[in-house]
Amino acid sequence: MPTNPFGKLNTPVSRLGFGAMGLGGSFGEHDERALVDSVLHSLEKGITFIDTARNYGESERIVGLALKEWKGERPFIASKIQSKGPGNLGWGQPIPVETAFPRGWLRESTELSLRQLGVETIDLMQLHQYWPQWDRVDYWMEELLRLKDEGKIRGIGVSVPDQRHDIVLPLVQSGRIDSVQTVFHIFDPLALDCLIPICQENNVAVIARCILDEGGLTGFLQEDTVFGPDDFRKSYFDYLPRSIYIERVNRLREAFVPKYASTLAELAIKFVLHHPGVTAAISSMHVPKYADENIAAASGEPLPDDVFEEIRRHYRWVRNFYETKYWV
């Protein structure tokens, strides 16, 4: 498994990371023992980076159970502070930082994460949402810096709401953060235009999320695909007629599979990992079969440069499927 130094923290991490959202039931219910085993399986296969969050249900607790059983070198653990903003506010539109992260809440949420994970230090603590208006006040950054000074966290990061990559550029250039997490995949490569190169220039790590477009870039979606009541993709893929999404996916398959990748998922992972400015890319690996496929893709031969550029230029399809979650 290829590795990268994690920005200014300089800790080597696997370029493919375990996205732990699936441990909290977002993609359907699974047996808890099977979920713990999925974390252990990925660690055994060379994954050294885990990304979880307070907002992911039981995810932190399940990661903690796996860490208790793991006998190897401890992986790099990233989590996120849960917003106190009501409902979906703050995800689709700005709210005051005092509403999202009131004074004292960053510490309270971090302490709870530490207990759930069963660790004394979290390698990276991220704000689970961020808006540049928040830079007008300093208390939230001061609270994070105190947690860092106390050894409760090692690094500070932010997760960018949906596809609005550029709102974080001033914070990246300020030198006050260690990482940015953002949406980045074949259909939406816009983070390559500004965010990723500017993070490179400032030695800020980039965590790419949604690299398989919530599974759509695996080719699983069909006209008759049914999602369970707790699966958030129930609204995600019905932002527009499914036939449009399926046609876009089929175009990719016909042009590049199997010539440059054995599967669509492999193509999507190779695309995201092609640029050296992507420190780590996270995908849900709560099912060992998917973990094995993703790890094999990340460890294989990279895409040729000209193929990467062709996909970047001619297959982008930027749209915000999260609008069905925020606005409908």
Rank of each mutant, 00 (worst) to 15 (best):
I246P: 07
E310S: 07
S42A: 11
W105M: 15
F184K: 11
W317N: 14
K234M: 03
I311H: 11
W70V: 01
D292R: 04
Q129P: 12
L221Q: 01
G7R: 06
L221W: 00
L171I: 07
Q129G: 10
D138V: 03
R107L: 08
S179A: 12
Q133T: 15
T11Q: 15
D149K: 10
V183G: 11
F49N: 11
K259T: 04
A66T: 09
Q93F: 11
Y290V: 03
V249P: 01
D193A: 09
Y315H: 10
V63R: 08
D138R: 12
R164P: 12
E301S: 06
S262A: 05
T263N: 04
L212K: 09
E69H: 14
L273C: 06
V63P: 05
K325V: 06
P229Y: 15
R154L: 04
Q82L: 12
G92D: 04
S262R: 02
T48Q: 04
E310H: 02
R103A: 15
H30F: 12
D238S: 08
K45G: 05
V137D: 12
D224C: 13
A53R: 10
L40T: 12
I62W: 07
V180L: 12
L303E: 00
L303T: 01
I50T: 07
Q93I: 08
R248W: 03
E247F: 06
E150M: 02
S79A: 00
S235E: 07
G46W: 06
G64N: 08
R107D: 08
Y239W: 09
T110F: 03
G19S: 06
Y236R: 00
I47Y: 01
I196Q: 13
P276C: 11
D193L: 09
F27Q: 04
S284C: 06
I81A: 09
L217K: 13
H185G: 11
P132E: 10
D51C: 03
G92R: 08
T218G: 00
W317I: 04
L89I: 07
D51N: 14
I156E: 02
F49T: 05
E44I: 00
G151N: 02
P12E: 02
V287P: 07
C210S: 15
F27N: 00
A291L: 09
D213G: 07
V183S: 12
E108C: 13
